[in-house]
């Protein structure tokens, strides 16, 4: 213990303390403050999700009992109800199929487009694709519904996949463009010097090197398609309903079965959260793509 500090570690204010001595203490106070704030942030963002998870294991009687907020006897009944009686496996499959197809097709269309737009700096063309991000979904739904119901396609998978591609494609182009922008040209150029055509260099050199970027774009577009509500609300039929629509319909009838509703909500969010846990880095890269270019 140095002479300028008291035994409890606080600085001795009676004597003149050199500025350098005070600094570690201030930074220690900041450290404590930072840890407290970080814990608070985690609690605020996680607690509601934890509450939803807890409620999904409660009987409806326990949900109404404030004394059983945290301690209660868990039950699988809600999940049995949701998965068994309400045909949720069909909805899970629908959500998966629509998200998978729309993502795959959007990658096929979007990756080469993003490549061309990045390499030839086609900023005006890129703007056309990015317009899709600005336009309100309803303004597209009215004409789509008009046309597709005249073609008697509403309620089928094809229309759902097409509409979700509309969400996925701009996202993929946006992410892949910033990926290709940051990729050095030299490799492609040397491949062309070695006798590959330009397209050959793209498919044999650039594409294999872009796996990370493609994974980022694919994961994000899958998540956005899985979460999409409005398009499926209008365009899906009884057998092609996706999970968000199924949950929404859960409350449309009579009184709310809270336990069942929370179980259904968990069923929708868990797959996405598991994907997010394992692909955290990709998701963050994708969400912040192009943000630091200025």
């Amino acid at each position: 213990m140095s002479a300028t500090t008291l035994t409890d570690g606080r600085p001795d204010t009676r004597s003149a303390v050199p500025a350098r001595r005070r600094k570690p203490l201030r930074s220690r106070a900041y450290k404590v403050f930072r840890v407290v704030m970080l814990i608070l942030v985690v609690i605020v963002f996680i607690a509601p999700l934890a509450w939803m998870l807890l409620a999904s294991f409660k009987t409806n009687v326990d949900i109404y009992d404030a004394g059983k907020s945290i301690i209660f006897s868990p039950t699988w009944e809600n999940y049995n109800n949701v998965l068994g009686r309400n045909n949720y496996f069909q909805f899970i499959f629908n959500s998966f199929w629509v998200a998978f197809c729309s993502t795959a097709l959007s990658l096929v269309l979007g990756v080469p487009a993003a490549y061309a737009m990045s390499r030839f700096t086609m900023h005006r063309s890129a703007l056309v694709v990015l317009m899709a991000r600005i336009i309100p979904g309803v303004s597209l739904l009215v004409p789509w519904y008009y046309v597709f119901s005249n073609m008697r396609l509403v309620g089928g998978f094809s229309v759902l996949i097409l509409s979700h591609m509309f969400v996925a494609l701009p996202l993929i182009v946006y992410i892949m463009m910033s990926f290709f922008d940051s990729m050095p040209l030299e490799l492609e150029e040397s491949a062309q010097v070695d006798g590959l055509t330009a397209i050959g260099a793209f498919s044999r050199i650039t594409l294999p090197l872009s796996v990370g970027g493609i994974a980022t774009a694919g994961i994000l577009s899958f998540i956005f398609s899985w979460n999409n509500f409005m398009f499926a609300l209008v365009l899906s039929g009884a057998h092609t309903k996706t999970l968000p629509v199924a949950i929404f319909n859960f409350v449309s009838y009579a009184s709310i079965d809270w336990g069942g509703l929370m179980a259904a909500a968990v069923v929708v969010t868990i797959p996405i959260m598991v994907i997010a846990l394992f692909t955290q880095k990709y998701i963050v890269t994708g969400l912040t793509a192009g943000a630091t270019k200025g």
């Binding site: 970080l38 942030v41 985690v42 963002f45 996680i46 509601p48 999700l49 509450w51 939803m52 409620a55 949900i63 998540i223 899985w226 979460n227 509500f229 999970l243 968000p244 949950i247 929404f248 859960f250 409350v251 809270w258 509703l261 929370m262 259904a264 909500a265 968990v266 929708v268 969010t269 996405i272 959260m273 994907i275 997010a276 846990l277 955290q280 998701i283 963050v284 969400l287």
Partner: peptide
Amino acid sequence: VRVAILLPLVATPVAVGMMWRL
């Protein structure tokens, strides 16, 4: 901490709405 922050972001908005309703 980053995972905790990421979870609300990827959660399905309709499910999030239902969760806050409760």
